[in-house]
Amino acid sequence: MLLVSGGAAVAGMLVAGRASALPAVDMEMVLLAAQVDPPKDGTGTTSGAAAHVLEVERALQAKGLLAADAVDGHYGTSTIAAYAAWQRSLGYSGIDANGIPGATSLAKLGSGRFTVTRTVSAGSRTSTYGGKRVDGRTGDMLAAADAMLSWNLTLDQGSYSTSDPTSAGTHDGGGVVDVSVGSLSSTQRWETVRALRTVGFAAWLRTPSQGSWPYHIHAVAVSDPDLAKPAADQVHDYYFGKNGLANHAPDDTPSAYRAAFTWWEKYARS
C-alpha cells in the first residue's frame, strides 16, 4: 500500500511539474500587440509582447488556423484573422469574434500549451455611465478619471453604438466614448484629456475644424477586448503619437496635457 500511495504521489508531482513548466502568456501584452501591430508597415513586434504573441501564434498554427511563416511574434492581420477564426470555431460571432483575445478564448487556446497571466475582461456590457452604455471596465476607468476633476464627465455617446455615422465604426464595440466639453473652458478641456489618458484611454480633443462635429473628446480604452477594428487602429495611432483621425497626423495635444502611454490594469497597479 505504501508503494501504491508513493507511486500516486510521484505521478501527481510529475503532472504538476508538467503543468508548471508550461510557458506563461501575458494577456495584457498580447492585447497591446493586437492593437498596435496590425496597421504597421512590415512585421515589427511590440516591445515586451513578442514572446507572448509567439505562443498564441504557435497554438493557432497547431489548430491549422495560421501559416508557419506568420508565426513571428507580430500580431498582424494574419494573426487577427486566425484568432477570429478560432473565436468563431468556439461559437462566437460579432464583436466576440473580432480577432482580439478574450480571457475565455485565450485560456481554451492555451489548454495544454500555455497558461494565461494578467487576464483582462471588459466586464458587463450592460453597464452605464451618465446614462450612456459602456462596459464595466470602461465605466471604472471613467469613474477614476472623473475623480481627478472638479467638474463632472458628461458623455455624448457611449459604446456598442452604431447611431453616429461620423464615428466611422469606432463605437460599434466596447471601450469607446465621446465626452461633451461644450460648457468647459479650453484649459478644462485639456485637463479632461489628460485625466482620461492618465487612467488608460487614448483620448483626443476633437474640434469643428477637423470634421462635422462639435467640440468633444473622443476616448478609446486601451486594451479593451471588445474594441471594434477602427477603435483598435486608433490605439495604434495613439501609441505612435498620432491623432487617431483618417489623416494620421501628429497628435496636437499640448505637451503639458499629455500622459505616458498606459492601460487601465497597469494604471491600477501603480
Rank of each mutant, 00 (worst) to 15 (best):
Thr104Pro: 04
Ala68Glu: 12
Leu106Arg: 02
Thr154Asn: 08
Arg125Ile: 13
Arg125Lys: 14
Ala107Ile: 11
Asn98Gly: 06
Leu155Pro: 06
His52Ala: 04
Ser47Val: 09
Ser111Leu: 12
Ser78Gln: 15
Ala84Pro: 00
Ala51Phe: 06
Ala49Pro: 00
Glu55His: 09
Gly123Met: 03
Leu109Lys: 03
Ser47Arg: 10
Gly123Trp: 05
Val56Ala: 01
Tyr129Cys: 10
Ser127Thr: 15
Pro101Glu: 07
Ala70His: 08
Asp37Glu: 06
Arg88His: 02
Lys40Ser: 12
Gly110Phe: 02
Ala97Gln: 00
Ala84Phe: 00
Gln61Val: 05
Pro165His: 08
Ala144Trp: 10
Asp140Thr: 12
Ala85Tyr: 05
Ala70Phe: 08
Leu155Gln: 06
Trp86Arg: 04
Ala67Asp: 15
Asp96Tyr: 10
Met141Phe: 07
Val56Phe: 05
Ser105Gly: 08
Val30Thr: 00
Ala122Asp: 11
Thr115Ser: 12
Ala168Tyr: 10
Val134Pro: 13
Leu31Ser: 02
Thr162Pro: 06
Thr126Ser: 14
Ser127Phe: 11
Met148Gly: 13
Ser111Glu: 13
Ala143Met: 13
Thr126Glu: 13
Met27Trp: 00
His74Met: 04
Asn98Ala: 04
Phe114Cys: 02
Arg113Leu: 11
Ala51His: 08
Arg125Cys: 07
Glu55Asn: 06
Arg118Cys: 01
Thr119Gly: 09
Ser121Ile: 00
Met29Trp: 05
Thr154Phe: 01
Ser89Gln: 13
Thr128His: 14
Val134Cys: 14
Leu54Ser: 03
Gly130Thr: 07
Ala107His: 08
Ala82Val: 07
Thr126Lys: 08
Ser127Gly: 13
Arg133Cys: 04
Tyr160Asn: 08
Gly112Ala: 10
Asp96His: 09
Leu155Arg: 06
Asn98Lys: 03
